[in-house]
Structures are given as C-alpha cells and as structure tokens.
Simulated assay, not measured.
Amino acid sequence: MSAAGIPVVNLMRTPDGAPGDSVMAGDREGAELAAQHLLGLGHRRIAFIGGPPSVDSGRDRYVGFAAALTAAGLEPDPTLCARGPYTVPFGAEAVMRVMAADDPPTALYSANHEATFGALGALVQLGVRVPEQLSLVCHEEAPWFPYWHPPITVVDNGARDLGELAAEQLLRRIDSRPDNGDPGPEGVGRLIRVGSRLEVRSSTTAPRRPG
C-alpha cells in the first residue's frame, strides 16, 4: 500500500520499519499500574495471563508486569505465568493451570480481553470467589465490566482515543499528499502512544491469606 502511494497508519501494532505513523497504547505503563495496584494491596502471589512475546502488546504488558514485581523485590513465578494466543479457550485453560498450582495465586492480572473472557468463565466454573479468594485486574475495558459481579478493576487503554488519533493521523497524511499523480512511498513516521489509566473497582482487595 505504501509503495502504491496509499497513506498508512499503524494502529496497536508496529512491525520493524513499518511505513507511516504508528499509534500505540501505553501497554507497559498499564501493566505496571495493574501490578503496582495489586502489590500495594499486599499481594505477592500474582498470576499473569497474556499474549505471546512476538506481539507488541503481549511483550510490553509482560515487561511492565515483571518490572513492577522486580521493583518490589519479587520475580514472576513461571508456574503462575501463562502466555499464548489471543483466544477465549487459552484464557480458560490458563486459569485452570495457574489455579492448580501447589501454591495458588491470591491475585490475577489478565492482560488481554480475549483471555479475560475465557478466564472469567473458568473462575465461575472453579467456584473461585472474586475478590475474597482471588483479586482480579483485567486489561482493556468492556462495556459490561462495571456491571459484572463484582465490578472488574481494569486497565483502560483508551481504545476510543486510539481510534480517533489514528483516524486523525490518517486524514492528515491524506491531506498532505502531493497532488502530482506519482506519490512516492511513505517513510517511517512518528510513534505516538496513548496513556493507560487504572479504573479501580470491587474485584480487587487485600489478600485474605499471606500472598
């Protein structure tokens, strides 16, 4: 598309050397906020479910999560970390796996909405009470999260802002094209990040047992 002179804006993903501007979420920042919130409540056994390291968001959210634990003098426990495809079945299987650990977690950070949809069903199936038995933070807001029982604490990655900014950048690129009938390929553009925000609700509380 770029070679054909079609303006390009990358949204949420930015392959190396990709032409055009890239509009990205503050994934590392958001993951740090989630982990810091749980650590601040007293949790030390914190599970992580996220995407693969080959994808920007999967890599950056794990890096942010691990950085927050390291700053608190901890390290991610491999038995409590599950990274895999962005699918509902993976989220369900990952919850079954981490909750079956010899020393199960007192908190869970589910780092993408596809995994979250599977994780919520698995927690119900297991009869895990949130937040009494397990505090839960999910990444990416959903319209029904405030109405779940209990309402879910989320990292809001500003999806609306991301979409609007990407559209604005694309329109700007279209308007600035030379009208000479032979626009050249786009060069690598700017990297623009939209900050994340933690929305604390009732799905997180201090652990009822030592974390």
Results as ranks from 00 to 15, higher is better:
Asn180Arg: 04
Arg193Pro: 04
Thr14Arg: 14
Gly195Ala: 13
Asp103Cys: 03
Gly73Tyr: 12
Ala119Val: 02
Gly58Gln: 01
Asp161Leu: 15
Leu69Asn: 04
Glu93His: 10
Leu33Gln: 15
Arg129Val: 12
Pro89Phe: 04
Glu93Val: 04
Glu168Asn: 05
Leu126Pro: 09
Gly42Asn: 08
Asp103Ser: 07
Met1Ala: 14
Val137Thr: 09
Glu164Gln: 15
Glu141Ser: 04
Val130Thr: 09
Arg28Trp: 00
Glu140Phe: 08
Val95Leu: 08
Ile6Ala: 10
Tyr62Ser: 02
Phe65Trp: 01
Glu186Thr: 03
Val124Trp: 03
Gly50Leu: 05
Thr70Leu: 14
His43Asn: 05
Pro131Gln: 09
Val154Asn: 01
Ser57Ala: 14
Pro151Glu: 02
His149Thr: 11
Arg208Pro: 00
Arg197Leu: 14
Arg61Ser: 01
Arg129Ser: 04
Glu199Arg: 01
Arg97Gly: 06
Gln133Trp: 07
Asp175Glu: 14
Pro146Leu: 11
Leu38Ala: 05
Thr14Asn: 15
Arg172Tyr: 03
Asp161Glu: 15
Gly51Tyr: 07
Leu126Val: 00
Tyr86Leu: 13
Ala47Asn: 00
Thr116Gly: 03
Glu141Val: 06
Pro143Tyr: 02
Leu191Gly: 01
Leu165Pro: 01
Thr204Tyr: 08
Glu199Ala: 07
Arg193His: 12
Asp60Cys: 03
Gln169Ile: 00
Met24Ser: 03
Val124Gln: 09
Arg44Trp: 07
Gly195Trp: 08
Thr204Gly: 00
Val128Leu: 10
Gln169Asp: 06
Glu141His: 08
Asp21Phe: 03
Glu32Ile: 11
Gln169Cys: 13
Gly64Ile: 04
Ala47Glu: 05
Arg83Ser: 03
